[in-house]
Amino acid sequence: MKPAAFDYVRASSAEEALEVLAKEGADARILAGGQSFMAMLNMRLARPKLLVDIMRIGSLDRIEEIEGEIVVGAAVRQAKLLGWDKLKAKLPLVALALPWTGHVQTRSRGTICGSIAHADPSAEMPLSLVALSGSVHLRSLKKRRRVRAADYITGMMNTARADEEMIEAVSFPVVAEHGYGFREIARRHGDFAIVACAAIVSSKGIRLAVGGVADRPEVRDWPGLSGSALDDALNRFAYELDARQDVHATARYRRELVRRVGRAVIEEAVQCHS
């Protein structure tokens, strides 16, 4: 269980990292925390020719509020965001979801952007970013572009990132006066979510984002539904997610959790909103 051989570059600036990506393309991978990716290297599931370590790029290790968004740099570790004193006030949903990401010992090294880059359908940060209509800031040597989170994640561990691009940051919009709810069902504390539900309730309506079921986080918006209409909407959503079964849960169980936990989380968010 040892990685296959690769070259290693410790980039001291984003430009340096991008130069390597421009040159090596798909053969290079960014190392940013590595709490999922290193395990894949050890198992030889992934065999890049070159790793670009961006964790010493100081300019990427920033949490900033810019024009109503919280911009989290590529080198910001999960523990840093969790410990950020304004997190609860600015990003209540992230404050609810982030403690579910791995364990203390992996949040201390893992990055927010790394989790989003990895695009695991059961991970909390991609789910939160999609739920909040956040964006991914991609950059190559030639240009920068912003991609909506929902467009960024194209499937199970597949993203819209081009080979020469890296995530420079992600941004979470700060929205006042919304109610939030988050719950996750996993076999054990810290495991991959069987179902994770994030609800956002505002005067405009209800938004429910679900992770762990489809091959990427999926979102539905409903104008102020309640009662059986909400149940119907949840039921439709549950089926639309096309749940699969594995050793931990049946497809039917996942649908059931979307209905029941989804409902509970929405109610939490409604309560929090009012």
């Binding site: 894949m40 599931l45 992934a46 890049p48 695009a119 499937g155 199970m156 561990m157 597949n158 993203t159």
Partner: peptide
């Protein structure tokens, strides 16, 4: 056929 298939970084 010889193919390279995979998902995300998991290719072989």
């Amino acid at each position: 056929a010889d193919v390279t298939i995979g998902i995300g970084p998991v290719k072989g």
